[in-house]
Design a binder for these strands. Structure first.
Lengths: 252, 252
DNA sequence: GTCTGCTTATTTGTATGAGTATATGGATCA
DNA sequence: TGATCCATATACTCATACAAATAAGCAGAC
């Protein structure tokens, strides 16, 4: 292959890998590029050999990365036809890893709206179910998350993590695996709320009271109250972000 | 390696592959085994070399299969630690391929219940949004699906496919990518409804009227009516299956 | 001129073997 | 008893060769 020296100075394709295996690092790199719109649906990738050489990895590693993205519905690859980006409708946009890739950059505003709408559908129902079914251990988890949230505040990393844990605990308390699987999607929206909020208002409103109301209703086993409290929490969160969804869902 | 003859009689690991590439066939084989409970969370797989030899495929193909399952949150693999099945809470149970694997065998009753509960949360809200936002093309798609459903009946494969298309079209008409991504999950539940129904009652009730009511409300732009009609459709579907969810969600 | 069927060239898919990196669990030592 | 170190098992990466599949181009018939 002519100049076969592999630039031993810059080992491991230059960039920092973040402790990931190479195939996973490549998958992330390609995945973020796709969700960012660098590669659009319908685009055909270069051949495996060229791609692997450009990225300075083996064809094996590159192929394993492609398999990952295929598994998430982002790519399709066939002999002779090549590897191409699938239409967005085929993507598993609720896949946790994919959500992470989306929110690594500046996420698409329309999709953030979609996620909030999903939240508006899921979380009130989840709160209602959680009020009926939560175990004591799950209630304790919510209480602890709430406490840490209050303690650290949403300006800290720990506080935001606690916020996520609170919402996660509610979904887990529904005792429904299908709903619980939406935790990452809801979590992404939750996380974006504070990120977004802190860009605008200063000081931001403290959402502790809203959360507390949800918790109290769940603790009391008040299903209807829990649903209402969660709906109110979401309404306020949206107001904080100055986002208006086209229409609130489930209003009557 | 001693007896290195590879039984040229039974090429390609015996079983029928269904036109899939080998890595995908292996992924399906492992995936179905996991969802069926043959490999339980915490179980550690045999080494790559042994596994590949036993399945009579190359390590390359086996590894790519593992990458697929890792991407879906079913497996985790690390040097020295081996490849192990992750706890169910980490699985992307809403992944379309994974749902297909689950419903290939006899799906877990508890998970079917969960999926129906999810349907009960998602579809009424989706119907409401669809009534507000649907394009004429999407409305046409619903109408055609409805017509084919009536024409073929739910005892035929075409009829069931049309049923799925109808529900899918409603989700698409919400103009919400996050909701649309739940199409496979909803579709799995929809499909299971008829499968299950036809095992029991004979003749099964014709659900055309329920679907028609949903369609009419969406066509008329009647958001509240669409929500109500979809809720009624779900209520009747559940009754047909003689399944009672623990409690209906959102009732008031 | 259009269609059909074959050929071929390109691209992914599979196989194999060698060597590397990493985490683990046990041995060693304080 | 506890922490530290190290041998080792295991997945990870690489390079190369060959196989399979299929899209596209070409030839021939109608």
């Amino acid at each position: 292959m002519g100049k076969e020296d592999r630039h031993p100075a810059e080992r491991k394709f230059g960039s920092e890998e973040g402790g990931l295996r190479i195939h996973q690092a490549i998958a992330r790199q390609l995945g973020t590029a796709i969700v960012a719109g660098i590669h659009k649906p319908g685009d055909v990738f270069e051949g495996e050999i060229e791609a692997a050489e450009r990225l300075r990895v083996s064809r094996t590693a590159y192929r394993e990365a492609v398999r990952i993205l295929v598994a998430k519905g982002m790519l399709e690859s066939r002999p002779k036809a090549g590897t191409r980006v699938l239409p967005r409708s085929r993507w598993n946009v609720l896949d946790p890893e994919m959500l992470a890739w989306m929110f690594a950059g500046e996420p698409d505003a329309a999709f953030v709206r979609d996620l909030f709408e999903l939240r508006g559908v899921i979380e009130p129902a989840a709160a209602e179910l959680a009020a009926r079914r939560r175990t004591d251990a799950q209630l304790l988890a919510m209480e602890q998350a709430l406490g840490q949230m209050r303690g650290h505040g949403l300006s800290t990393e720990e506080g935001r993590a606690a916020d996520q844990r609170f919402h996660h605990a509610i979904l887990a308390a529904t005792q429904n695996d299908a709903l619980a699987a939406l935790a990452s999607s809801v979590g992404a929206a939750v996380s974006w709320t504070t990120t977004f909020k802190q860009r605008r208002k200063s000081p931001p409103r403290d959402p502790f009271a809203d959360h507390r109301a949800v918790f109290d209703a769940i603790a009391a086993g008040d299903a209807e109250g829990a649903r209402a409290a969660m709906s109110e929490l979401l309404r306020l969160a949206l107001a904080d972000m100055d986002i208006a969804l086209l229409e609130p869902v489930g209003g009557s």
